[in-house]
Nucleic acid binder design. Structure first.
Lengths: 212, 212
DNA sequence: AAAAACATGTTGCACTTGCAACAAATAAGA
DNA sequence: TCTTATTTGTTGCAAGTGCAACATGTTTTT
């Protein structure tokens, strides 16, 4: 994922942030984050540290919806923060820039190179994010666990054009990503293995069916 | 949804399209669209006409994934076009601009106002689209039809801050949006009505449970 | 190295859901 | 208007899945 400040010098970054009326906040590990980020039209940039967006359901079960690493974006429009069950938590001391989308898109002064560069960077990031979301929707609209798994494996394998998939998360998180119960997914994967459709070795999946 | 050419004059639009190496194509109703649009990094803008992105499953059943109206965007990254089952079909004579994202984000010449305006317009559109996708994911990760319906109604009602939801599509399409079987959804809505959680009059839903 | 926390595998069971098939109601086209 | 196509409602049934509960394995913390 590109960095939002790619090709922008440190000096220009400061000018940019002033132009966009951005504010920098510091949060200590485990502190709760400003509710302002949940508001419409707010964009956050994590400069340093590590955040998670989690969901706490009515039983108190936590699931990680999204991880935010350094130089990544988050916010109510691009993450899932509108839902009241969802929260941003600070897992490590973090430095965060908050700004309002309207200050970006309603900017009059367009002669500044660093401003234009920033917008182009955001555009690139948003295209990639849209792509990720579309992929997830593609998977989530499959009606059975089996089909979600196969669609996911097929898609990931095709990205590298090989029959191997290296899972970017553990099985618990994969179940969350696919929107299914972990134990039911585990059962389904057993069947897939038994039927010779896949082979599993840790996080490396080998696809034995014909990819489409 | 904003227009990608907002605040850009017709004259400048032409310059812009030349700058971005865009090509204009004309398609007749029911003609098949260029396979080029399915390629990575292609962005389409529908100037005039009407398109649909549809999925044809192995049984030959068609479902409409997305509708593209005049001045709307589509493309492999922002729509779901990577899947082989999905196709763009021309429902009415259409005039389409095709361009490559790389020509947008790798543009060196940044002094042109119309170019910067175009990028800002795209940014706005992408933020809205990301938001829509997030909402759909939020709904699709609910595990029962009941919870998907309730989440959807709750979300839509909260947008206007009222207890009413006016469905933007018919029930068949709602079932597609929620990723569930139509008849099963119909059954579940019957239960919701019987239990006094909702009231349905055509496309107007009244929410009788407490919104969150 | 021991303890605690977390991840994975397994299974019975009740409940939910997709699917198929059909009737009835609406809408669209000739 | 009549005909045809599409949408909506309904239901039986088999298959799929969530949930709970627990055992085992692995990683992290102290």
């Amino acid at each position: 994922m590109p960095n939002p400040f790619d090709n922008i010098s440190v000096k220009n970054r400061e000018k940019l942030l002033k132009l966009l009326e951005a504010h920098t906040y510091y949060f200590q590990k485990n502190s709760s984050i400003l509710p302002i980020i949940k508001e419409e039209n707010m964009l956050g940039i994590l400069l340093t540290g590590y955040l998670q967006i989690i969901k706490i359901d009515h039983n108190g079960n936590k699931t990680i919806i999204e991880e935010i690493n350094e130089m990544e974006l988050f916010g109510s429009n691009i993450s899932s923060l509108k839902n009241n069950e969802n929260e941003v938590i600070v897992k490590e001391d973090s430095e965060i820039i908050l700004l309002d989308y309207n200050h970006i898109t309603q900017q009059e002064d367009e002669k500044k190179d660093y401003y234009n560069q920033f917008i182009k960077n955001l555009l690139k990031i948003f295209i990639l994010k849209l792509n990720e979301k579309n992929e997830r929707i593609e998977v989530l609209t499959k009606k059975t666990i089996r089909n979600r798994l196969l669609e996911y494996f097929n898609m990931e394998a095709n990205k590298h054009g090989s029959k191997y998939v290296y899972l970017p998360f553990n099985f618990t998180d994969l179940a969350d990503y696919l929107g299914v119960d972990r134990s039911a997914m585990s059962r389904e994967m057993k069947y897939l293995k038994e039927e010779g459709l896949i082979k599993v070795k840790g996080k490396k999946i080998t696809i034995l069916f014909e990819r489409t």
